[in-house]
Design a protein around this nucleic acid. Structure first.
Length: 117
DNA sequence: GCAGTGACGGATA
DNA sequence: GTATCCGCCACTG
């Protein structure tokens, strides 16, 4: 609120990202690029990451299931506490080692594919 | 108003 | 095959 100033367009973008993230099944993970691609903004994967920065205002968003293309927990440092990310992932059956998802291609969940573009 | 930065990804050398 | 650079869009200093 006081920290984030969003125009209506950006707010809509945020909601879309949140909607997709909430659809991620347990034991699965997706990448920023996949979400961006699903939203039709594949060139702006950063915007997805930016949106995730505002997830702190949305407690129902499993942001821990969103990682970068390599399956690396690049955003764990933004969690509270940071180790909560791999903790939740591990609890859902996703193996995390050295801040990276083991066998990411297996748990990868592409909305454009799984939801059926 | 300009420059630097960022939860990324793809392209090029 | 590996390493580095650039582009994306918005925010902050």
């Amino acid at each position: 609120m006081s920290v984030i100033k969003l125009s209506e367009e950006n707010a809509d973008f945020f909601e879309r990202v949140y909607a997709v993230v909430k659809l991620i099944p347990e034991g699965r993970a997706t990448s920023y690029g996949a979400i961006a691609n699903y939203l039709g903004a594949k060139r702006s994967a950063r915007m997805v990451g930016w949106a995730m920065n505002a997830v702190h205002n949305r407690p129902d968003i499993p942001a821990h299931r969103v990682v970068n293309r390599m399956g690396m927990l690049s955003g764990k440092m933004h969690f509270n506490p940071p180790e909560a990310m791999e903790q939740k992932l591990a609890k859902e059956g996703i193996k995390v080692e050295n801040d990276q998802i083991v066998d990411f291609k297996t748990v990868n969940w592409d909305p454009a594919t799984e939801l059926g573009w």
